[in-house]
Design a protein around this nucleic acid. Structure first.
Length: 557
RNA sequence: UGGCCGAUGGUGUAAUGGUAACACAGGACAUUUUGGUUGUCUUAUUCAGGGUUCGAGUCCUUGUCGGCCAACCA
């Protein structure tokens, strides 16, 4: 992209805000963002949108980005997730300036809380969870004040300190902010700041018996780090008033929160809870199952970081709810791989073709380009023999009009080799075609074709004699419906039972070299990626995406 | 029936008071030794009514529709 084109692309609303802040010299023109995952699950494509936004915004305006783990709830969080998150962010191509943890601030946060108590803005409440919920009121009715709301500063300080010491049972007391029990915004009705939990924390161990809530951790963490623009999703809009209340009362660095609409995508689910369920209930084979919308799933499926970044760029950023067509993601990976993936020929559903006029035992070496989009990728050798496999669907005994493939009396080119004509069809007792007999045109070899014959169709093929069997995993969308979450009943009822088909394909010899995570275009079949479990003795390929298929559309009409 | 956020082609995103743009998807044609790629063309009176204005997708107002908010989750 030239600078001129870049300049012409209009800014999204967050870029406008940051650009104006920089122009006005807010915070001395400094921009610091943060990506704040909770380490309780794997990152998905929706997080990728947030990552691209946070890191992209900072980079564009000369700033930097912190990676901060929002680890304030020890019962759901784990270091396993910390590691996967770091790996995924790096794989996407981003580097943080600081690796931080909300738990690093537990001491400071405790001090902040006592400040609020001293100011008469926080109190220890002995009510039970049920009582607190009942006193909260409803969106249309104001709440009622807790009987513990007006304890003295001294008593609150004492009780809070004893909560920290672990003197009280879990759930017996909480620390609440004293805001406004009648506020129309429910989050302002004396929100909880701290709860008692005797849980082991993945970083602070057993040091703490009390843990801060999101609302008393996130904004303060932003402020401590000097985050200038704290970007989150729409559901946090009602939290913003509280975010600002704490910063105001504590008189700390004024980070600002901005909200954008999270990514939703067709034929999948995006909530961590639902993804966890798919994993736990074995509907998929783990977080990195290639059908999952997780970063690790997409990676295993064969997606490239560049394609995912391009996708995030194309979907844009706004504040309205959206449901992005998964077809756009597929477009992005096809566009990337079309330019870079080496071509190989693999027959997924073999039909034997005997070239009756080709000498038995003979081999004709064909030199075929590795990538027509990139001639620097060179060529490879493919041995042509008397017996080859073609795709079963590439032959029809009684073809419809406009069928350019093999049929009795019809001619096609075998890619990079010869033109062949179908002379005979061999069938078994069930009337199933078992073999097709052809003759080849000796003077039609690719590169020095003097036959003068032009054929409409070119088929991929593989030599049958020393065919290389490979395992192929054909992935399809995980759900049968566009938006499983909005359907009646349990979203799992809409799982696509055919989302994975495992077959054996027959490959040309050059594929033998494939290493795990190598990506290829299997000619006319799609993009495939050697699976993590693939070995030289047992090659396994995951289908990343099919090719566009205009014939399938035409035939389906 | 409280508060907040939003509404532009099938899907997304733009147009920042001056006559709806771009991408994907869909359709048509051309090119092609991948029915791939590529190229050209094509698909909208901006949720509805009222108002301000010479002029409104944009501002005001009312309504409609959608989303979010009453976890000791984040």
């Amino acid at each position: 992209m030239t600078t001129e084109e870049k300049k012409e692309k209009s800014l999204n609303f967050l870029e406008e805000i940051v650009e104006e802040d920089v122009r006005e010299g807010k915070h001395g023109g400094r921009v610091l963002t943060r990506f704040p995952p909770e380490p309780n699950g794997y990152l998905h494509i929706g997080h990728a949108k947030s990552i691209c936004l946070n890191f992209g915004l900072a980079k564009k305006y000369g700033g930097a980005t912190n990676l901060r783990f929002d680890d304030t709830n020890p019962v759901t969080e784990d270091t396993e997730y910390v590691e996967s998150i770091k790996q995924d962010v790096r794989w996407l191509g981003f580097e943080w300036i600081n690796e931080l943890y909300a738990s690093d601030y537990f001491d400071t946060l405790y001090e902040f809380a006592t400040q609020l108590i001293r100011k008469g803005l926080a109190y220890v409440d002995d009510s039970s969870a049920e009582e607190i919920a009942a006193m909260k009121g409803t969106p249309t009715e104001p709440g009622t004040e807790s009987p513990y709301r007006n304890r003295s500063v001294e008593e609150n300080l004492d009780l809070f300190e004893r909560m920290r010491q672990g003197e009280f049972a879990e759930g017996s007391r909480v620390l609440r902010a004293k805001v406004d029990m009648a506020a129309p915004n429910m989050h302002l009705r004396d929100p909880l700041m701290y709860r008692i939990k005797f849980a082991h924390h993945h970083r602070t161990g057993d040091k703490w018996k009390i843990y801060p809530m999101y609302d008393f951790a996130h904004g303060q963490s932003d402020s401590i780090e000097g985050i200038t623009h704290s970007i989150c999703t729409l559901e946090f809009i009602p939290h913003r008033a509280l975010y600002e209340w704490f910063i105001d009362k504590l008189e700390i660095f004024p980070s600002r929160q901005y909200e954008f609409a999270r990514l939703n995508m067709t034929y999948t689910v995006m909530s961590k809870r639902k993804l966890l369920q798919l994993v736990n209930e074995k509907h998929v084979n783990g977080w990195d199952d290639p059908r999952m919308p997780t970063i690790s799933g997409l990676r295993r499926r064969g997606y490239t970081p560049a394609a995912i970044r391009d996708f995030c760029d194309r979907i844009g950023v706004a504040k309205r709810e959206n449901l992005i067509d998964v077809g756009l993601l597929e477009f992005c990976i096809r566009e990337d791989l079309n330019k870079t993936a080496l071509r190989r020929m693999v027959v997924l559903d073999p039909l034997k073709v005997v070239i009756t006029n080709f000498p038995e035992g003979a081999t004709e070496i064909c030199h075929i380009e590795n990538n027509p989009e990139d001639l620097d990728a060179g060529t490879r050798e493919v041995p042509f023999t008397r017996e080859v496999f073609i795709e079963r669907e590439d032959f029809m005994e009684n073809p419809p009009k406009k069928y350019f493939r093999l049929a009795p009396g019809q001619m096609v080119r075998l890619k990079g080799a010869f033109i062949v004509r179908c002379d005979d069809v061999i069938k078994d007792e069930n009337d199933e075609v078992t073999e097709v007999h052809c003759t080849y045109l000796e003077n039609s070899k690719s590169g020095n074709d003097t036959s003068g014959i032009n054929v409409k169709g070119t088929l991929h093929w593989a030599p049958a004699t020393n065919a290389l069997p490979v395992e192929i995993r054909l992935y399809d969308r995980l759900f049968r419906v566009e938006d499983p979450s909005s359907e009646e009943g349990d979203f799992k009822e809409y799982i696509n039972p055919d989302s994975l088909k495992v077959i054996t394909g027959y490959a040309e010899p050059a594929l033998r070299e494939a290493q795990a995570s190598d990506r290829f275009q299997f000619l006319r079949k799609g993009y495939f990626c050697a699976d993590l479990d693939s070995t030289p003795d047992r090659l396994i390929f995951n289908r990343t995406a099919t090719l566009r298929d205009n014939w399938a559309k035409e035939a389906g009409k």
